[in-house]
Write a protein that binds this DNA or RNA. Structure first.
Lengths: 189, 189, 189, 189
DNA sequence: AATGAATGAGTCTTCATTCAT
DNA sequence: AATGAATGAAGACTCATTCAT
């Protein structure tokens, strides 16, 4: 039961946060969206913050798992291909701008909520060290550092801008821009 | 009096939003920070949202003015130099990460607040068309478009990541990464 | 539960409005009077105005039902008797001056509150057309109109004056005055 | 100066109370309407309540003076004619329904404001004893009492109903109804 | 004599949390 | 395991009053 309810409520949270923003979402809205009662949230998550925390964790895990599995599925993985997979997964067409709106809502919240901040930093570090690991095989150390920092920033920056504009997010333009950034970095050599 | 109070309250808002985040900032906190009473906010700004709106506008104007003045001060302004100025001003050491935290708080809020959203889009468009204008003189149209989109994203993405990490933001690394991105784009040719 | 709470809160509203007047009554006073918390009012009535609206509706319904039932209980109802019942019910000794104070408070408020105004007009029209219906059987049309208008005014005017004076309202004098008015109108013929 | 300002502010109060109702009228609105500053009200009237009190007094005096002067202007004043004058002045076409709205606003307020209540009662008593004085010359004591009570109620009741309906108040119908009431009372004999 | 900037107490409203069932 | 009624603390906003000029 626990796992079913957890998933129901996390899904409902994603929908509500996308619609109303994280601080204008009430637990009653979430409960209604999930077709459950409001009391259930405290029961399973100890409170609103607990639910938000778990939702954010879920969001992060989802992307991480997608990347990990894609990497595992390719037997002869070059560093270049690994980075390419990270880019492709970040701009996977199944990630809609709704999802990104939620992400940014949490991002903003995590600036002032210690527990979310920790989560964010762990996730960010993991992505960063992952990128750095691959770049180090392709570039000198200092250049690799900048490359990792820049690529991560470019990806999130594109989403940031995309989630603001009302138009549909252009996943392919985003991929093109990011890969060009990547290629240029490597061709410098 | 009006202008003095406006500035006092906007400054206080910046400080509070940086400390507590935009939705955890109360008008009483802002008033106390400004050394004034809470009623004054409705008196001068018509309400909390009015103050937030004007604060965001102020933040945007500040950057815009800095860029414009710097450009005007250079007589023989090449397209390349113009873009460089935009980068330098965006990563001006006098912009601290506090300022950027505020920016992101507003960014997040503007996803669900129509008036802030309009403001954000106007500002975003202005920067984008400015960049595009310069890039078009240096690159073919499609490449110029991607370049403008990418550069704007990279700048904000670097701030996004910087405002999350607790460490001091490294303005010079940010400039270096962004300028390398710029140079690589132009050297492609 | 809903119906119990509704009645509790409407009763409490009547008591508070009688004591303090409609615009000096706070929802905290009402809640305390009802032995409940203030939040409950928004929960059941959507806000203070919703509660006032329903209270006024209740007040009107009460009188209307009393009249209707009394009329139904009399098999051979002449027009004269019907009018007499309306008078008697309006000055029923169980209507105390407290009740009338509330009525007037709402009356005054309804001059500037559209929703209350609509309610008032509907109620007023209903009484007026009811009276007119009966008078038309007893008098020529123009006289019937004046009679209906006059009788309704006399009834409310007597309450108006009664609710201001501190002394106990004299229901029997009011009835006497009104019935004399009625009889005189009919004897003119 | 005092008298000029007093009149300015009382006039402004009448206009605002008619527009917004007595409890939704702010002193700033009144001051603006009078083209003066808000501080002036405390200066001349000691506060909002002081201004409301004086405005109500003014309203009452106005009617009283009109009646008194009209009576004085007629040399051979019969009791019947005196009562007729009271009716005519109460339904003088120069009294618009706006004026009556204000009257009722004050009436309602005076149910819970002791100083206004005293004022109201004094005024009411004065009218009542005036009517009674004349009726006693035309009717036996008990009938005279009822007549005075009834006539006063009918007048205010007609205004009460008139101020609620949106249509223009029909002064002539009101006079007709009231005079018929009067004549019927006297013809009973 | 007159202003109007500033105050802050008082109100309504919202909403996460609790808890009896 | 689940509900949802009820709470009450906290926030935004209003506005009569004050007071320095």
């Amino acid at each position: 039961m626990l796992e079913i309810r957890r998933q129901q409520l996390i899904q409902a949270t994603l929908i509500c946060v996308e619609k109303y923003g994280v601080s204008d979402t009430t637990i009653i809205q979430i409960a209604q969206q999930a077709g459950l009662s409001s009391g259930i949230i405290s029961h399973y998550f100890g409170g609103k913050m607990g639910l938000l925390y778990e939702t954010m964790r879920d969001l992060m895990r989802e992307l991480r798992v997608t990347i990990t599995e894609k990497c595992k599925s390719e037997p002869n993985l070059t560093p270049y291909r690994a980075i390419e997979i990270i880019i492709d997964c970040n701009f996977d067409p199944k990630i809609d701008s709704a999802r990104m709106k939620v992400w940014l809502s949490f991002w903003s919240m995590s600036m002032h909520q210690d527990n979310l901040n920790r989560l964010q930093i762990i996730n960010d570090s993991r992505l960063h060290s992952n990128l750095l690991f691959h770049f180090k095989k392709l570039l000198p150390k200092q250049q690799a550092k900048n490359a990792a920092r820049g690529l991560a920033a470019l990806i999130d920056g594109l989403w940031l801008h995309g989630s603001l504009r009302c138009e549909e997010f252009d996943h392919y333009q985003a991929r093109a821009i990011t890969k060009q950034f990547l290629n240029n970095l490597l061709e410098e050599q």
